[in-house]
Nucleic acid binder design. Structure first.
Lengths: 204, 204
DNA sequence: ACCTGAACACCGTTCAAGT
DNA sequence: ACCTGAACACCGTTCAAGT
């Protein structure tokens, strides 16, 4: 994990890890099984830290309102991706039902139940909420949300009229710089809005 | 792309591509620049197909209601990930403002404007909507949504009481099998619900 | 029980040389 | 202008051998 944090996931090889540990590459195999298992273990450890208490992102007391608890968890995931950008992409290939993820899933389940989502809809909404959080966080960590280079800005401006009609209607708005912390908070607000709307629909 | 579809992204190497083309690996470099540029080109081509007309996922006429157009686009992205699972993960590391993505972004912009989202909030909501769609689609393609092996089912059942209290309240619901097509449609419905709620809030 | 060394079948990319 | 061949510095993993 130190290797991935400092030099990127590409710098993590059985050979580099072995050197760091002071051992021959093949000595790792009885311990970690394979490189895939090593990466799996890294993600698992991170997920464990996420819901561990005490820790950098200790969960709110269970008594806190569901909106608060969901926010704290989401911020924890985002912080994890900031500190360990290599992890964001790996999370999509790790079953959400795996050991390390179950606690996280349970926290979202509890929040949704408290919000008034009918049990039958809770698993689907958990997947929806977690997909959004991971999608946002992977977009930030992976670079999907930026940067807008001058070349791309020029290209956008050229095609504004015909091929990008909606862009043309947003000319000034698209020039403002984005506060990503504020955007994440606003998204969490709207996610809560959706959860409430789904709960209302269920109440009839 | 044929190589990635048939044997996975791992089978795509400069050497394997060169062999397929009937040329030496080094002969590719003047044409594609580097392997990173090759992967970038693959994603760009896919995004181009997504909004091309005519094509496998031709967009609705601009006259169709925004909810319809958003659904068609989202289904197109999902279908793309089904046909080309290797692409899902790559999309997070490709700037959403890159050439190939701009048309897709514009379609979402237009839908949100028509839904009544105030211009100042449209870019943020576009990122939110696309993050959810990509997050969902990458979860399906990457394997995050399954499978629940017997081992994991057992472990979940063991920890049900204390560590996973919300799981315990969902015992029966968690045993039902999921229709992923229906789930995606339900998620799109709830996404539209959120968009309407945000528009309503803006209307005061 | 745990580790080493050599080997196999791969990578992306450079460089100089060919036609 | 376009391609080849050899080489460099890497990979994950196997196998047999050591202590």
């Amino acid at each position: 994990m130190a290797l991935a944090d400092e030099r990127g996931l590409g710098a993590v090889s059985m050979r580099s890890v072995a050197e760091l540990v002071g051992v021959t590459p093949m000595a790792l195999y009885p311990h970690v099984g394979s490189k895939a298992a090593l990466l799996d273990g890294m993600v698992g450890r991170l997920l464990g830290q996420l819901v561990a208490e005490p820790g950098p992102t200790a969960p709110d007391p269970p008594a806190a309102p569901w909106r608060e608890r969901l926010g704290t968890l989401a911020r924890g995931v985002r912080q994890m991706a900031v500190r360990h950008p290599w992890a964001a992409g790996l999370l999509f290939s790790r079953p959400a039902v795996a050991s390390g993820s179950m606690r996280t899933v349970d926290l979202i389940f509890a929040a949704l139940l408290e919000a008034g989502i009918p049990p039958a809809e809770v698993p689907r909404l958990e997947r929806m909420v977690s997909s959004f959080i991971l999608g946002h966080v992977a977009s930030e960590a992976g670079g999907r949300f930026g940067p807008l280079t001058q070349d791309l800005r020029d290209e956008r401006y050229r095609h504004r009229g015909q091929e990008l009609p909606a862009h043309a209607r947003l000319d000034d708005v698209l020039e403002t710089t984005v506060d990503w912390d504020a955007e994440f908070e606003a998204n969490l607000d709207d996610l809560a809005l959706m959860i409430e709307a789904v709960a209302d629909r269920a109440r009839g």
